[in-house]
Computed example of a mutant assay.
Amino acid sequence: MSRPLRIALIASARFPIGEPFAGGLEAHTWTLARALRSRGHRVDLFAAPGSDPELDVTEIAVHRPSLSAAARSDVSMPDASWMDDHHAYLRLMLDLAGDGGRGFDVVHNNSLHYLPVAMAPAVRVPMVTTLHTPPTPWLESAIQTHGPRTVTFTAVSESTAAAWQPLVTGARVIRNGVDTDRWPVGPGGPHLVWFGRIVPEKGPHLAAEAARRAGRSLRLAGPVGDREYFETRLAPLLDEDIRYVGHLDRSALATLVGTSAAALVTPRWDEPYGLVVAEALSCGTPVCGFDRGALGEILTPDCGLLAPPDDIDALARLVEDTTRLDRRAARARAVGFCALDAMTDGYTALYQELAA
C-alpha cells in the first residue's frame, strides 16, 4: 500500500471552501480535500476565511498592503480586491518557499491566481496546478516566465487540455468527480431546474427564455455573482412559473435537482467541465444544454441532449425529449464517468509519482 502523503492544497482566497458553495471550483476543492483525508492523507487546506472548520484549514489571510498615497493615486493602481488577492498569495507562496513548505510531499494549486504558478520554482517540493478554466492572460504569462516544466499540470477535461495547447503540453486529464452518495437519485418532477452562479457567462436568462418557449416551469438556484446582471437580465423574466429560489446548501439543492424533470445548462463560454452536469446526472436528472466546452464529453444521448450554442429555440425544442430520457441511465453515467473515486485515484497516483 502506498504511504500516506502530506499535501498542501491551495484554494481560493476570495470565497470560503464550505457550504453553500460560491461555485463549482469551491465545491470541487472541498470534495477533493475530504476524499484525500478519508484515504489517510494529511491535507493542509490553504483557503479563504470562513472555510469549513472540519477541514484542516490555514486561512489565506488578506493583509492589505500599506500603500502610500502616491502609490494609491498612480494610474496603474488596480482595484482593491485585486491587490488583496495579490498580497495574500504572495505571502502564502513566500511561506511555502521557505520553512512553511518543508513538511509537504506535494503542493496542489487549485486557485486561479497566477502567483502560485509564477513562484513554483521557489518551492522545494513538486507542485501540481489544475487548469480549471480556458486560457487567461495572467496564467499564460506566469507559465511563460519559466516554462511549464516547473509545474505538473492537470486539466479537468479533454476540452480544457486542448484549449491550453501548445503552451501546456501533455496536461494529464483528471475529471472532476462528484460524491454520488451526497447527490442521491430523485424521483423527478414537473419543473425544470437551472443551478449555478448567477453570472452572464452561465446564461441563466437563456434557460428562463428556453423554459418559457417550451411551456415548462423552471426553478433557478445559486449565488448571485453579478447583481447588476441579475437585476437587469434575469429578474424581469421571473414570475410564478420561472422562479429564483435562492442560494441553497447542498442537501436542499440535491433535493431540488432530484425532483426536477430535467436540468438546463446554458454556458455562454467554453465550459471547462460543468460540475452541475455531473451533479444533475447523479440525481438521475437528464440534462438539456448548449454544446460548449466539455459538456459533450460528459453527456451521452441516453442521458442528455445538446443544442447549438446560444440557440434558445433549439434548446426549447429538445426539452420534452430530454424529460423522457431514462433517469437510471443518467445515474449510471454519473457513477461510471463522474465518480469521486476515479478523480481521487487520479490525483493520488500523480502525487505518489511526483513524491517518489
Rank of each mutant, 00 (worst) to 15 (best):
A8F: 04
R14V: 09
P20H: 11
A22L: 12
G24H: 09
H28I: 08
W30R: 07
A33S: 15
R34A: 14
L45C: 08
H63F: 08
H63W: 11
S68F: 09
A70S: 13
A70V: 14
R72G: 11
V75E: 13
M77N: 13
A88S: 14
L90P: 00
L92E: 10
A97E: 04
G100Y: 08
G101P: 04
G103R: 12
H108V: 00
N109C: 00
L112R: 13
Y114F: 13
V117F: 01
R124Q: 02
R124P: 00
M127V: 14
T129R: 00
T129F: 03
T133P: 00
S141D: 12
I143K: 02
R149C: 12
R149S: 15
V151N: 00
T154C: 09
T160D: 06
A163N: 11
P166F: 14
L167G: 07
T169R: 15
R175D: 00
D179I: 03
D179Y: 05
T180R: 03
P184C: 12
V185T: 12
V185L: 15
L192H: 02
F195L: 11
G196V: 05
G196T: 06
P200R: 12
K202W: 02
E209N: 03
A211N: 07
A214H: 09
R216E: 02
L218I: 13
P223E: 13
R227G: 03
E228R: 14
F230S: 01
T232V: 12
P236G: 14
E240V: 07
V245N: 00
H247C: 11
R250I: 00
L253S: 06
A254Y: 05
L264I: 06
V265F: 09
T266F: 13
E271C: 11
P272G: 01
A280L: 08
C288K: 12
G296P: 04
D302G: 02
G304I: 03
L306Y: 10
D310E: 14
E320D: 15
T322W: 02
T322C: 09
T323I: 11
L325N: 07
A332E: 10
R333S: 04
G336S: 15
F337L: 10
A339D: 15
L340P: 01
D345L: 01
G346W: 01
L350Y: 05
Y351Q: 07
Y351H: 13
Y351D: 10
L354H: 06
L354Y: 07
A355R: 04
